[in-house]
Simulated assay, not measured.
Amino acid sequence: MSEAVVAKRYADALFQLGEEKAILEQLHQELNIVHEVFQGNEQLFTFLKHPRINNERKKELLVEAFAGLSTDALNTIKLLVDRRRTEIIPSIIDHFVQLVNDAQGTAEATVYSVRELSEAERQQLEQTLVKRYSKNKFKLNNVVDPSIIGGIKIRIGNKIIDGSVSGKLDRIKRDIVTAN
């Protein structure tokens, strides 16, 4: 079974657990912290994958590292250690966050611009995206990228809306090359 399918199943189970216990938002916040730790620490993955370190020792480290987590989140991570599935933890969290966002009518977008967007620009862009995509709210992550020259590029999931100057120049370049 592919890792994506397995990750989705764990995420679905966590989501259902969060709904049943009415701790969905708490799990969402806790798992975001876990995701940041796993993304920023390659040594943790190496430790958790090491075949000579027994699972009890790995779980002890995780209990110490994530002492403030709820028992449900911590037990899920410990279960993944027992089943030798620690490499899919970030993928599980990504699927879980998507499920929570879908349930709340929220979407996440990454906005690339040459400078930091002002609060008024962020609000206007968020309102436009809310109307266009029929969502309750958009969480915008602004990334400053001088290589786009001007305009903005928006990434929502796997969809990219490119209104940047560099994107327009690339399209013109492709048109010229294909015309010859």
Results as ranks from 00 to 15, higher is better:
L79P: 11
T128L: 07
G105T: 09
V143D: 08
D72A: 11
A103Q: 12
L69E: 10
K137R: 15
F138K: 10
T71Y: 04
G157D: 06
L117A: 08
R122E: 15
K137D: 06
K131C: 02
K153S: 08
Q98H: 11
R84K: 14
L79T: 15
N75S: 12
V130S: 06
N136Y: 06
A120G: 04
Y133K: 12
A73G: 08
Y112E: 15
I148P: 01
Q104W: 04
R83V: 10
S113A: 14
R115T: 12
E126G: 03
Y133A: 09
R115L: 06
F96K: 04
S118K: 11
K135S: 10
S134L: 09
V111M: 09
S70V: 03
V100F: 03
T106S: 10
V114L: 08
R122V: 15
I77W: 14
Q104P: 00
G150D: 13
Y112R: 09
T106E: 15
A65D: 00
V97L: 12
T106K: 14
S70P: 00
H95G: 01
G105Y: 08
I152H: 07
K131H: 08
G151H: 07
K135F: 05
I154Q: 06
Q127H: 13
Q104C: 01
L129I: 11
E121R: 07
R85Q: 12
V130C: 05
V81H: 07
V114S: 11
A103N: 13
D94A: 05
E87L: 13
T86Q: 13
I92P: 00
A103Y: 08
D82N: 12
P146S: 10
G105N: 09
A103E: 13
A73Y: 05
E121Y: 03
G157A: 05
Y133I: 08
T110N: 07
A65K: 10
S91H: 12
D145V: 01
K137C: 02
I154M: 07
K139V: 10
V130M: 05
P146H: 05
L125F: 11
D145I: 01
S91N: 11
V97Q: 13
I92C: 02
I92F: 00
K78C: 15
D82S: 03
P146F: 02
H95I: 00
I93T: 02
Q104E: 14
D82T: 01
L69K: 01
L117T: 03
L74H: 04
G151E: 13
R122S: 15
H95E: 13
K153P: 00
L79H: 10
Q124E: 14
L129R: 11
R85A: 08
T110S: 07
K153W: 01
G150F: 00
S91M: 14
V97G: 00
L117P: 01
D145Q: 13
P90K: 11
I92V: 12
I148M: 03
A73P: 02
G151A: 11
N136H: 14
Y112F: 15
R84L: 03
I88D: 05
R83W: 02
G68F: 04
I148S: 03
N75C: 03
G151C: 04
Q124W: 03
R132S: 07
V114K: 09
A65P: 00
L117V: 01
R155V: 10
G157W: 02
T71E: 15
N101V: 00
D145L: 03
F96D: 02
